[in-house]
Design a protein around this nucleic acid. Structure first.
Length: 184
DNA sequence: CTCCGGATTCGT
DNA sequence: CGAATCCGGAGT
């Protein structure tokens, strides 16, 4: 199972988002391995994207988004849940891909359809913010099985109605007919 | 320092 | 449809 390289992440964010579908997110903690196939993502294009956290400039929280690609950007939402992103494009761009749903593969207890739910099921929290995904305990690999031909659905991103015209962009991607997608 | 609101989820 | 519940970010 080859781990995705820095070069994979250091590309156009929409391409990375699309290519992450079908890849496998792995978290190993205390000898326990948890893994899930990525079936739904959203692209946040950079500081010009009004729906992206980075559009408010670099702050303590968003510094990771402006950092080098291939790192996790994990933040707390509504004081209750965590959301996980992977940083994309060259350092300084402020772009990332939000992981929104997984198909459970191994070691997973609980639901994985939704950004907060999958973080809970995978044991992902703020301690993993800024964690390098080119590491041996938290990474993304390509599918160990032969790549399937999947149809990708494009929709507006969820929960960003405040972002004006950016709310209309089709930057949410998911695998068609996959039952683990958070919503149709 | 205070105040506001959120890339969500769950229960009514 | 409203509550839960914390913290980042903006303003004083």
């Amino acid at each position: 199972m080859p781990i995705l390289t820095r070069a994979f992440y250091e590309r156009d964010t929409e391409l990375v988002a699309r290519d992450l579908l079908g890849k496998v997110l792995v978290r190993i903690e205390g000898g326990v391995e948890r893994a899930g196939r990525i079936v739904e993502v959203e692209a946040y294009l950079g500081s010009h994207d009004k729906a992206a956290h980075s559009s408010r400039g670099m702050t303590d929280r968003t510094r990771v988004m402006f950092g080098p690609p291939g790192h996790a950007y994990v933040y707390v939402i509504y004081g209750i849940h965590h959301c996980m992103n992977v940083v994309t494009e060259p350092e300084g761009h402020g772009s990332a891909v939000l992981i929104r749903a997984l198909e459970p593969l191994s070691g997973i207890d609980g639901r994985t359809s939704g950004p907060g739910l999958l973080c809970k099921a995978m044991g992902i929290d703020r301690r993993l913010d800024a964690h390098d995904l080119l590491s041996d305990d938290f990474f993304i690999t390509s599918d160990p099985l032969p790549a399937k031909r999947v149809r990708v659905v494009k929709r507006p991103r969820i929960g960003v109605d405040y972002a004006g015209r950016w709310a209309k962009r089709l930057l949410r991607f998911y695998i068609a007919d996959n039952p683990n997608v958070s919503r149709k």
